[in-house]
């Protein structure tokens, strides 16, 4: 009975969704003429290269035009990690060693993951350093690095993850992000002013785009530390024995 009611409701929702999609034809040009700046998309496409000298428009929007939003997003990730830690908090007995509850992996997995880990980390660092030139950026690079740490955490039962180091990296990256924003205010611009100190440079150079690459590198380190923290907390839960 309840099932049919739910299906009926979903049919209504689906009907109105289809009606709404009929108003937005697929692939129609909704940005308009770029030179008119009639839509916000056209404004970004026209002004990103001359004003910020960043080749990747999405990066410019995420880090600079909507930089405040990204600061909030990084804060949400930090709060999620903290909340996860406090929800799954478990009182440790005195002298009890912290250990991950996994079975020992075979030698092949261990050697293979140790061989792969530097390359995965290198790929992640490449992705977030070139965030303003090619697809990618801090979030993607940080997630790739966290995947590398996941490999190590699964392969080695007693892989020591420096919690102090993780916290330090996370805090320093967050302070860098907020500090760059405040630096823009100090030098007489707005919060997260783009050409605050390194200068804009030429488009498609590695060092270009003002503060955007610096912020994205900070975001990369912060996301990597936070996601690794999430995985470490989840992997060290003791399962119920029933």
């Amino acid at each position: 009975m309840k099932k049919y009611l739910a299906i009926f409701l979903l049919l209504i929702v689906g009907f109105y969704l289809i009606q709404a999609f009929n108003l937005v034809p697929f692939g129609a040009n909704r940005v308009g003429n770029i030179d008119d700046e009639s839509t916000v998309g056209a404004y970004y496409l026209k002004n990103t290269v001359p004003k910020t000298s960043v080749a990747n428009v999405v990066t410019a929007i995420v880090v600079n035009y909507r930089g405040f939003d990204t600061l909030g997003e990084v804060t949400v990730l930090f709060l999620a990690t903290t909340g996860l830690g406090s929800i799954l908090f478990r009182k440790r007995k005195h002298g009890e060693e912290e250990e991950r509850v996994l079975k020992e992996s075979s030698q092949l997995v261990k050697i293979g993951s140790r061989l792969l880990f530097p390359f995965i980390a290198l790929l992640g660092i490449y992705v977030f350093i070139h965030g303003h030139l090619t697809p990618g950026g801090g979030f993607q690079g940080g997630a790739i690095i966290a995947t590398g740490f996941l490999l190590m955490l699964v392969a080695y039962k007693n892989y020591k993850l420096g919690h102090g180091a993780l916290t330090w990296i996370e805090s320093l990256a967050g302070i860098t992000f907020a500090g760059i924003g405040i630096w823009g205010l100090i030098t007489g611009g707005t919060f997260l002013e783009n050409n605050a100190f390194p200068g804009l440079g030429n488009v498609n150079d590695l060092i270009s785009g003002g503060v955007i690459p610096i912020i994205y590198i900070a975001v990369g380190f912060k996301v990597a530390a936070e996601l690794t923290g999430v995985l470490d907390i989840l992997l060290s839960i003791k399962p119920n024995k029933n």
């Binding site: 992705v127 990618g136 997630a143």
Partner: peptide
């Protein structure tokens, strides 16, 4: 491509693992 990279790194690997 930006969104594709994010979805591949976060959606495929990390979400499935947690």
């Amino acid at each position: 491509p930006d969104v594709a990279l994010t979805e591949a790194a976060i959606g495929v690997a990390l979400t499935t693992v947690i």
